[in-house]
Amino acid sequence: MLELAIGIILGCCALGAGTAMIAGVGPGIGEGNAVAKACEAIGRQPECKSQVTTTMLMGCAIAETTGLYALVIAILLIFVAPNMLVDVLLKSIG
């Protein structure tokens, strides 16, 4: 029975980490849009290339934040949560 409980904990942590990374879709679409628009802008005004590139990189970095939150959650779920939850389980059993 204990093995089953620990197995459920580990499996659910892995499932949760995988599910959390679905958030990676959003920043991907957003950054793709940003880069597409930046390419258009450079095509229209090639003399502004350096400024557009700088602004685009800044915008991409900020758009990436939500994806990185998901990444942090996933890393916590993989590396930190299983040990903690198993400890809680063992302590509650006594």
Binding site: A61, E64, T65, L68, Y69, L71, V72, I75
Partner: peptide
């Protein structure tokens, strides 16, 4: 919080 997570997440995700 977002500044710290952004920098840390980018470098760590590269390593992973």
């Amino acid at each position: 919080v977002s500044m710290a997570f952004r920098h840390y997440g980018n470098v760590l995700s590269g390593t992973v």
